[in-house]
Amino acid sequence: MAGGEPRSRAFQARAIALMWRSLAGRRLSTLWRLARLIGPLVERLSRRERQVTRANLAEVYPSRSPAERSQLSRQSLTHSTATMLELGFAWMGEPGRVETSILEVHGRELLDEARAEGRGVIVLAPHFGNWEVLNFWLSGHFPFTAMYEPPKLAQLDPIIRKGRERRGASLVPTNPRGVAALLKALKRTEAVGILPDQVPSWGSGVFAPFYGRLAYTATLLPKLVARTEARVVTGVALRLPGRGFAIHFLAADTRVYVADEVTSASGVNACVEAAIALDPAQYQWEYKRYRKTPEEAEGRPDFKRFRIY
């Protein structure tokens, strides 16, 4: 029994890697058709994903009818399925094919202008559309550094790392050494990527509104801005189902430039909301964004470190 779980995880990792490799050369239209077949099954058979998605949608879209939210849940899980199927394409597909799949780029001038002014660029990249395609484009057009946390299935780490670095991206750990690397990159007027919608560990965030409800939000951004005067933009790769992707860079909510951490975090969440508005179905609603609560914080001995908006 002792070796059963490691063997199971190794088998799972090999199966996932095989799927990515086998799908890497497929047309995006084929992958989207597969997603439309598999997505409804995920919504029907995966209780956890279905429940979390529906709970989040009820929280952020209370004015929509249950039928509308149910339809949006199915659409969202179909897009999440498409993202999983497209990972092999983004990481292992022929680079020319991936590049030509990016049919539109909007807002690139925000990055070009910042670098012309001698400023680095912080790209807030929420879990929307296909963020790996966004990484592919950024690392091919700008010196680009992003934080990276190895996957739970350790056997997949070399595959993911190679895929993300193949266009020149520099991956740094999610620790003080990684933060130092981001600061150095920004001071060289390069671009760095940050995930704005992951729940941070206790002591690394504050509570700020996200669709009107308090969500524990990371406070790395104001520290980077204060020390580098970098420009902040939101970046997403919007899926054009079956055809390709449209890269969008959006000017950040001005609150992200405020030194106060709660105000800045509120601006970060507003940036994520603005990206989601492009197409709510393409956001990864199955993530438990509200899993840490102010009530939970109050019971902690280091509560004084947490600030409530």
Rank of each mutant, 00 (worst) to 15 (best):
43 E>W: 07
202 W>M: 01
142 F>V: 04
57 L>T: 05
117 E>L: 06
155 Q>A: 15
27 R>E: 15
53 T>N: 01
5 E>K: 15
145 T>A: 07
89 F>Q: 00
151 P>M: 02
22 S>P: 00
101 S>Y: 11
17 A>R: 13
44 R>E: 08
197 D>K: 11
139 S>N: 00
278 L>F: 10
291 R>S: 15
174 T>D: 09
273 E>P: 11
150 P>G: 02
214 L>W: 06
193 G>V: 01
93 G>H: 14
25 G>V: 09
262 V>P: 00
307 R>G: 10
26 R>M: 10
139 S>K: 03
284 Q>V: 05
76 S>V: 06
287 Y>N: 12
93 G>N: 03
302 D>R: 11
88 G>L: 05
37 L>F: 11
299 G>T: 06
256 V>H: 03
221 L>I: 02
239 R>Q: 05
240 L>E: 14
252 A>Y: 03
8 S>C: 07
306 F>E: 15
206 V>L: 02
186 L>V: 03
97 R>W: 01
260 D>C: 04
62 P>L: 02
308 I>Y: 12
52 V>L: 13
295 E>Y: 05
75 Q>N: 08
40 P>Q: 13
295 E>L: 10
39 G>Y: 12
43 E>L: 12
252 A>V: 00
110 L>Y: 13
31 L>M: 00
224 L>P: 00
25 G>A: 05
97 R>I: 11
